[in-house]
Design a protein around this nucleic acid. Sequence first.
DNA 1: CTGTTAGCGCGTTCAT
DNA 2: ATGAACGCGCTAACAG
Lengths: 341, 341
Amino acid sequence: MKRGHQVTMKEIAKKLGLSVSTVSRALKDSPELHPETKLKVVEMAKSMNYQPNLLAQSLRISRSKVLGVIVPELTSHFFSSNISGIQDTAYKRGYNVMICQSNESYVQEISNIKILVASQVDGLLISLSRETKNYQHLQDLYDRGIPFIMFDRVTEEIPVSRVTVDDANGAYQVTKHLLEQGCKKVAFISGPQDLYISKKRKEGYLKALVEFGITEAESRVYISDLKEETNKQIAKQILEEADRADAIFAMIDPLAIDVMLVLKEHGVRIPEDIALAGFTNNPTSSVVEPSLTTVVQPGYEMGKIAANHLLDQLDEIASDDPQSFILDTTLIARNSTLKKK
Amino acid sequence: MKRGHQVTMKEIAKKLGLSVSTVSRALKDSPELHPETKLKVVEMAKSMNYQPNLLAQSLRISRSKVLGVIVPELTSHFFSSNISGIQDTAYKRGYNVMICQSNESYVQEISNIKILVASQVDGLLISLSRETKNYQHLQDLYDRGIPFIMFDRVTEEIPVSRVTVDDANGAYQVTKHLLEQGCKKVAFISGPQDLYISKKRKEGYLKALVEFGITEAESRVYISDLKEETNKQIAKQILEEADRADAIFAMIDPLAIDVMLVLKEHGVRIPEDIALAGFTNNPTSSVVEPSLTTVVQPGYEMGKIAANHLLDQLDEIASDDPQSFILDTTLIARNSTLKKK
DNA sequence: CTGTTAGCGCGTTCAT
DNA sequence: ATGAACGCGCTAACAG
């Protein structure tokens, strides 16, 4: 394809019989320049539709004004909200974003990092893949002094800033709510155990149980790899148990929806027979029937905070000391748990 | 923040007492080089964790290996699927993507284009904002010879390649299906009239009506700006009409969901009293009650095709002649339209 | 006030 | 088989 040639300062200079540096100065409104020359240059630049070559500028100052973002998947509503927040923030502060998805793959995450670093991004915002259990690649980034922070899917093993929601408290709120509704046997369906959020949410779940006099030994924890099939499988398993749970807290909304479908299929009334709650407030959750009790996780806000903090560090407005931003969550009680009296 | 210093060829050369060009040659495995030297360089590079500076390479060859993407919003499931397809494809072919969202704003769309072009992207994939009714900015891009193509939200006024779904046929399928279910008075709620997809879908709607002996004069077209409030407002309006519709075809799923909520609120049975259908197959649509009849729009596939085609043009595998890719849609009939006999 | 020089990192001449 | 020089586009330091 005929690639469009971009006008350069050199060409402007040539047309005007000036040196390139004069053009450069005129374009950045240097004071020590004859106003008339300045005007001539500016007008010529406009008429030739001159656009500065950001690549050249970046190479010169060794700063690209680009942030790299890595998320496990782009199509999840939560992550796309994060990205939206990051993008809007970066844009406002004069940065572009390069976005990669790891597709929940550890090797692809590593490859993404490598490419973004080679592309000279000024900093990285990373949300880890489900597969990531080894953090050497992050340690390497850290050792090389490449600025990055983590959000949502984080690890505590690397001393960089993190932005998360208060997962433990969110889970605590949900579980407490279920217990307050009179449920006695609350099951918790967790994602993979090594996931940070799995740990945190389980923590909150157990805390609420204990407060209501239920020991950890009496807790009902199920582990899913979060694939639809497994989710439904676990739902069936719960239904078949002799001492069946009367409430299910699913670690994320899509999981809850899968469970809901199984319950409905089996004629189980929600919430009368089994109450059901999720986590994250996906758009879907408010319109399913019964509407799903869940926890608001401010995705856009998280992205915004993460991007602003990273840019603050880059601009030396914020210190490099790792900071942990923990955003509040809000319980939204809906029909899937509200038992009519 | 202490910015990580990237190792350069210069440093490798210095450590080895060689010239930069030798290092360069060694790293790209040039044949006319002493094998031993080559080995030394490669090993040193590895031990120093050398990564080529893509910015410098890009500047040199005037090709950035970056594609720019502009979508109206990142959080819509359809667009994030597009982006996912674009990203995966670009990644496989050695390209990165810079993503911007216009937030449905015309001026932001222009600004995004400007920034991406200044960033020297090799090509652009654009989905127009709702506000975009003037195409001069695209004409300018075209005149400057900057490769770009459009997807989903396109215009026919600029001679570049387009990737869309067969909107007219999808709408035709839906409307025909409603009529076949025995509905006599099918309403169509459209988005803003100047939107390409509004026109195309209305076209399909009318075609089906005519086939069933209903004239355009008898058609029932409503226009929404697609904001929740307007959507619900229109739904109420339809309910209040004396000669009430017995089926509603909403131009996009979220609109259909808004309508569904209003219908349910007013005790209208779906589909018995009013059948309801949408377009796009959002994840939500399959789990609402009743499940929503809709049309599958292959978002990921569209992104993939769009990216591959643009890259083919860039790599001169495909010609520059504008091509129009029209993807097939598939009707999914669900409970919101399937009347039990 | 303006031109010359130099360098960001890389790869391709051209020279040895 | 290797080095030196040049240029991609831009800007800052140095000259005049």
